[in-house]
């Protein structure tokens, strides 16, 4: 996350360093970052570190709570839950990051255009955003998913679209305030193109709000996807998305609570880490903050 800031705003290298310095001081945020890194590495290395494949069924070893071979037990098909969770971090993190990416790109574009140009365009775009915002995001996501059909990509699209208004509004309002500042006026005065001004001046300067929102958005996206799996939309089996595992385990939760507990904990830890990072970034990006 912090590294991205460096790349996105090369001119502000020293400021990025400063942000990173402040971020580092926040031990919780660093812990969150470490956990997310571990999860990402687990996701990448899942085939290497997972003791079993995610769909290795063993009907002679079903519903084991704990054993040396299966540290987190097995599900009703005798699949190793730990392995599924590790593979699941691929699916869940992908959904989290990509859907935020979709929301960020589209929402950011809408917000940037709307905020920069203003006028009728702004009115139209913001009315559309108002319409999307009037539908609670989970209902929107579920309706989109019902329309597109289930599956990984459709889930990401559904979650991504429903988060567009968030990003659009944040970027728009920060652009509106930046637009008034002298360096933008100066760039306009020397005849810089609109695209250049947006890309070089406006976006880097309004990034901080967006970054914080995005890092927390990853957590929210993971929960949204899990919620959709919970009502039976979303990821298709045997794909081990955490929410789908949780949803499936719910039939067994009276006697085999661990089938619900572990996926829930993984979702929780991932989302918590993203929120910690978000909190930390917000504090670090806002130098005037309480200290």
């Amino acid at each position: 996350m912090a590294n991205n800031t460096v790349k996105a705003a090369p001119k502000k290298n020293s400021q990025a360093k400063e942000v990173w310095r402040r971020f580092k001081k926040n031990k919780l945020a660093v812990a969150g970052l470490v956990i997310i890194f571990i999860l990402i590495i687990a996701a990448i290395l899942a085939p290497v570190i997972a003791p079993y494949g995610y769909d290795d069924q063993d009907y002679s070893a079903t519903l084991i709570r704990f054993s040396k071979e299966h540290l987190l037990g097995t599900d009703n098909l005798g699949r190793d839950i730990l392995s599924r969770l590790l593979y699941g971090s691929r699916v869940s993190l992908t959904i989290g990051f990509i859907s935020v990416g979709i929301g960020l790109v589209i929402g950011g574009l809408v917000g940037a255009i709307s905020g920069y140009y203003g006028g009728v365009l702004d009115d139209i775009l913001m009315r559309i955003v108002d319409i999307i915002m009037a539908i609670p995001s989970i209902i929107l996501a579920i309706s989109i998913c019902a329309a597109l059909g289930p599956g990984l990509i459709n889930t990401m699209i559904a979650v991504g679209i429903s988060s567009i208004p968030n990003y659009a509004r944040i970027l728009r309002s920060s652009i509106l305030s930046i637009k008034q500042q002298e360096f933008v006026e100066a760039a306009t005065a020397i005849g810089a193109s609109d695209a250049r001004i947006i890309a070089k001046h406006i976006i880097p300067n309004s990034l901080s709000g967006l970054i914080v929102q995005a890092s927390m958005g990853v957590g929210r996206a993971i929960i949204s996807a899990a919620s959709m799996s919970f009502v039976g939309l979303g990821i298709q089996p045997p794909n081990p998305e955490w929410g789908a595992m949780l949803s499936f385990g719910r039939t067994y939760f009276r006697d085999y609570g661990y089938m619900v507990l572990y996926p829930g904990l993984f979702i929780f830890i991932a989302v918590l880490s993203m929120n910690l990072i978000g909190d930390g970034l917000r504090d670090a990006l806002d130098p005037r903050l309480k200290r």
Binding site: A226, S227, L246, F253, I267
Partner: peptide
């Protein structure tokens, strides 16, 4: 509060 915003509510409900 941080835990509260990180926990899926349906999971909390089941628990």
């Amino acid at each position: 509060a941080l835990i509260g915003i990180s926990v899926p509510s349906f999971w909390l409900g089941l628990m």
